[in-house]
Amino acid sequence: MSIEITVLFDVVPDRLTDTAAAFEELCAATRQEEGARRFDAFLSEEHENLIVLVEEWADQAAIDLHMKEGYVADFLAKVDGAYVRPPYVLRLRPLDA
């Protein structure tokens, strides 16, 4: 069974443009990873300055490898201080699981 994660990022308004660009780079690189089944970032239409990351991974090992990638460290450095509050992480499971 794959692992699905959704993360909400409340971005400081004057950091939205550069943070969105950093997410675009991260998504493009991550989609090349073998264990990444989905890795997409969206802007909320209802909530200004909210970026929503939707992920699906083959397994926990794929997530662990992803977190060790150099471009993840680069992304984290680019978005340091860009959030109003810590990201809200939702690790999801089917209702019938």
Rank of each mutant, 00 (worst) to 15 (best):
L8E: 12
L8M: 11
I3N: 01
E46M: 05
L26C: 10
K78W: 04
N49F: 07
E46Q: 12
A62M: 12
K68R: 13
F42E: 03
E45P: 01
A77S: 12
V11P: 00
E34I: 03
L50A: 02
D14T: 13
L92R: 14
L8S: 06
A21H: 08
C27G: 10
L53F: 03
Q60H: 11
E69Q: 14
Y88D: 13
H66C: 06
T6V: 14
L50S: 05
W57R: 01
E46C: 10
E69H: 08
E25G: 15
R15W: 03
A97H: 06
A22I: 01
E56H: 04
E48P: 05
D59V: 15
C27R: 01
E4K: 09
L90S: 14
V7P: 12
Y71G: 02
R38V: 00
E46I: 02
L8P: 03
M67L: 10
E4C: 03
I63W: 13
F39E: 03
F9S: 00
R37Y: 10
A29S: 09
E56M: 07
A41H: 06
S2C: 08
L26D: 09
L65S: 08
D80K: 12
T30G: 15
R85K: 15
H66G: 02
L8R: 13
P94T: 12
L16G: 13
T6D: 05
E33I: 07
E55W: 05
D64K: 14
H66N: 04
E4H: 07
I51E: 01
D59S: 07
E56A: 07
L95I: 02
D64A: 15
V79E: 10
E55C: 10
R15I: 02
F75N: 01
F9W: 09
R93M: 10
T30F: 13
I3L: 10
F23K: 00
E46N: 04
A62I: 14
T30Y: 04
C27Q: 11
Y83I: 01
D59C: 14
L50I: 02
V79Q: 10
R85F: 08
A97S: 15
V79S: 02
T17F: 11
V52S: 07
Y71P: 05
V7L: 12
D14H: 09
A22R: 00
L65F: 12
D10W: 13
D10A: 14
L95R: 03
V72D: 09
A22H: 01
A36K: 00
L65G: 01
G35M: 06
V12S: 05
F39V: 00
A73H: 06
F42Y: 12
F39A: 03
V79A: 11
V54K: 05
I5N: 09
I5C: 11
R91A: 14
A28L: 07
T19A: 09
S2R: 09
D18G: 02
L90Q: 11
